[in-house]
Design a protein around this nucleic acid. Structure first.
Lengths: 190, 190, 190, 190
DNA sequence: AATGAATGAGACTTCATTCAT
DNA sequence: AATGAATGAAGTCTCATTCAT
């Protein structure tokens, strides 16, 4: 069987299964079954299961970056760019709940801890945020807080409401999302 | 040999090992070794490994609740109570990083998803927050946002800075913590 | 707690549980629970679980012997004595289905095979049969067949109908039992 | 390495080991050792150990049926067909003592009790016997006894002499076997 | 004598990975 | 390149037995 995008098919299977049952719940047997390939084929694309999970993370990270960068209002006021990033992030996760679950599990897991200091991971998306924050602090738009704290005050609530939405604790709509991001803005602005 | 606190010894071993290696990393063999007990003893106190993880979660939850309730400024202004809860939570997690890691992994894992709708879980600590929020909204101290959003805006950043601290991305001190909680306050207050 | 007949209580528990779940199904935990004693107490009366099963077998064997010997028509014609033994055996097993199940499982199991050449086992009951048979052959009442064959032709059908009765394949009454034993008689008589 | 007959190799190992040490004695470790396969291979062919035992039983049942049906004197007098079935059964068991031990243990065990009412089990071989018996009773060759009793009077002694032979209590030869079956015939004929 | 918490060998089973086809 | 039968280390759990109380 010829498959152009076997790699992505496998990654998608991993995301779905991990979303459901965690990393343990996504066994190779289940992955190959869902991806309609043979056991051996996985090892032609990925070195090991760990590699598979790491590459899945990297793939989703790329998707998120692309999503955030699409239509990025370069040159517009900092508040607008700030809102854009938050909105795109929330949009992506709401549209792709299984991807969200995968990312959260990855971050909390030993995988996330291990790759935390790996500068290759998340580099681009973090850089965008850091540049925004540095600019905001330089121009005295933001409070004088460590950069990580500003990220926490802005990104923390957003991932939380995404989680709540996916867990069906709340139903998000554009209005609520916007007001939440504005709340985040209030948290960090002077 | 009789051990009064075998149950807690086991739980502590689980927390340590999970913190390090995730739920997969906490194998019965390692738990037994770390707790200096025999395999069979686990099953005298816990029905299964799942039960062990669930009970560990419940135990830590109790600890956190106790920590938050100690010195709770009942009757004082809402802002003060609000700051108290946030501060205690952060204090607990910074003092107990492995417990923090366990809780995060639990929440993100299928365990967390499964027990999410179990009303017995987290009940008390959630109720404290919900009462605070309802009071805040009633008295028009808070913005008119869904309760879950207010929780997100306040608790989201706090767990995020704890994670950053534990991951050594930032070094928290009382000043930073206080200012972060105040940032949270700014996010939700009118 | 003082118990006169703890030994018999234990044996009865073993019979019940083995009848249900085989030797594996009768765990020490279940036995002590059913017998309302503590784990340790078993080892005051029996050396090991094997010993317990062996002693249970010996105990039941004694019961059966007593049952067969009660009212044994010593001095009466061979046919009458023959019928007596068969009848008593069937009566005993029908009255005590769990004991029957235990005995069958014992005989088929490695326990039975191991104790098969142990002359202490079954000695008395076998001797009665052998004497009957030798007398029957001497007096040319029986066919000229090996003693074991005669036992097979007489005892085989009886245990089979007991099994059928206990398995609810058939409902035995005195008439059927008697006619079956007479069938056995026809099988061996000249 | 590909093994066509791995399933049968496993079954044979189970039969041998069970014959020796009962169902408990046939541990997975011993089975794989005897069958010269790896642990995992068992679970490619059988769902569980229970399934393995059940399938082993079914397999032997099929063998016995084939053995009994080979050269079945269809159309010949009932006595001849009757003798054929008995003889083939005894032949099979004497030739395959371990299979005999397995079957006996199975029948006596909770497995046997559980599958007793499963109509799929033993169906064919039982049907042959039942047809023979019904014909015999219809033509007034047999006594007026319940079918189960007739089966007991004929099959009971045969399994008993097989057991005796395998236990070395007796040495069967064709003459003795034939005379025993004739004894069975005497037991049931008018 | 009686108790039952503790033990640990060993049972069953899973699953990531390999490799002959 | 693709397949999937085979592998076996390692995981979870059971249960007969011990021994301090």
């Amino acid at each position: 069987m010829i498959r152009r995008d076997m790699k992505e098919t496998i990654i998608h299977a991993v995301v779905e299964l991990t979303s459901d049952g965690g990393f343990q719940g996504a066994t190779t047997a289940m992955i190959v079954h869902k991806a309609c390939i043979s056991v051996g084929s996985i090892y032609r694309h990925f070195e090991s299961k760990d590699d598979l999970i790491l590459k899945t993370y990297a793939f989703l990270n790329g998707q998120i970056l692309a999503s955030v960068m699409a239509g990025y209002p370069e040159g517009r006021p900092i508040r607008e760019r700030f809102l854009h990033v938050g909105l795109k992030l929330v949009d992506y996760f709401i549209a792709k709940p299984m991807e969200f679950r995968f990312m959260e599990q990855f971050h909390c897991s030993p995988y996330g801890a291990a790759s935390h200091n790996d500068k290759a991971f998340d580099k681009e998306i973090k850089n965008i945020l850091l540049e925004l924050i540095d600019e905001g602090r330089r121009e005295q738009v933001f409070k004088e807080l460590p950069r990580q704290v500003i990220i926490a005050l802005t990104m923390g609530p957003l991932t939380t409401i995404c989680r709540n939405h996916i867990m069906c604790d709340i139903v998000l709509d554009t209005a609520i999302i916007t007001r939440t991001i504005e709340g985040c803005w209030d948290a960090v602005r002077r």
